[in-house]
């Protein structure tokens, strides 16, 4: 009974505020409104199209970053990611496909490597049953994505298990060591102390291969682990990751 009365009281107290005509928005809701409008103005994203993304609002002091993260469909490689930075009156909208010539996607071609508003609208109007595989012919036709590694279709050959020889791993290990040193400005002595833990060659079905090189550096008070990914053909360093702070 007390619970019922409590709920009734809350409901009655809530009525006057809720009954007012003009909605009052929180600061984040207003920032979201600014960001949405910026995306609509620059990229033509309507509310229905914005609904394809998960929104994340983060405050960095006086600067607010509103990030629009793609979901699994349409494929994130096609949709890219949007970011709006808001600092006072200044609003800057950006897209990870900004380097793609707008003429490539503005016509609505689904074969475009960047899916802007026209392609997203086509996806939405396809209907929920047809959407599941709607984008598949298009994202699977894209060239291999080096950054999205590891992904399905890779098999690994490991040095640690004896499936790669010292000779085979010499070059990726040297590149990896140089990459860590260059990335973090390590002195030669520190770079020389890095212990090579393992080298894995990841090979995809289409032949594309990436070296994964793992180093361990025993320092005071704790160890530091580095993982370097290297394009096996071009030798370009794709990622260098530093990992510390493990538990247990």
């Amino acid at each position: 009974m007390r619970r019922f009365l409590l709920i009734l009281l809350i409901a009655l107290l809530a009525l006057p505020a809720l009954a007012e005509d003009a909605p009052a928005f929180s600061q984040d809701a207003l920032l979201l409104q600014s960001a949405n409008r910026a995306l609509e103005a620059r990229y033509g994203l309507t509310p229905a199209l914005l609904g394809l993304f998960d929104v994340e609002i983060t405050h960095y002091g006086d600067v607010c970053a509103v990030r629009y993260l793609p979901r699994s469909r349409p494929h994130p490689r096609l949709t890219g990611e949007y970011l709006v930075l808001i600092a006072g009156e200044q609003v800057q909208a950006m897209w990870t496909h900004d380097s793609v010539d707008p003429a490539v996607w503005q016509g609505g071609a689904l074969t475009s490597p960047a899916w802007g508003a026209p392609q997203l609208l086509a996806y939405l109007t396809a209907g929920s049953f047809d959407r599941e595989y709607f984008d598949e012919p298009y994202y699977t036709a894209l060239p291999p994505d080096r950054a999205a590694f590891p992904e399905d279709g890779f098999r690994g050959i490991e040095y640690r298990t004896g499936d790669l020889t010292e000779q085979e791993i010499a070059a990726p290990a040297a590149i990896g060591r140089a990459a860590v040193q260059a990335m973090y400005g390590l002195p030669d002595a520190a770079a020389a102390e890095m212990h090579l833990v393992n080298v894995v060659k990841y090979i995809r079905d289409d032949g594309y291969a990436v070296w994964g090189v793992h180093f361990y550096h025993s320092t005071e008070p704790d160890e530091i682990n580095y993982v370097v990914r290297i394009d096996a053909e071009s030798c370009e360093i794709l990622t260098v990751t530093v990992i510390t702070g493990g538990i247990g």
Binding site: A17, S26, L50, S128
Partner: peptide, 20 residues
């Protein structure tokens, strides 16, 4: 999301494009 006492609209999350 609306604050029940003040009526402040705290958040609006939009979603479209469901599959299936």
């Amino acid at each position: 999301v609306i604050h029940a006492e003040t009526g402040l609209v705290e958040n609006i999350v939009i979603s479209s494009g469901g599959v299936g």
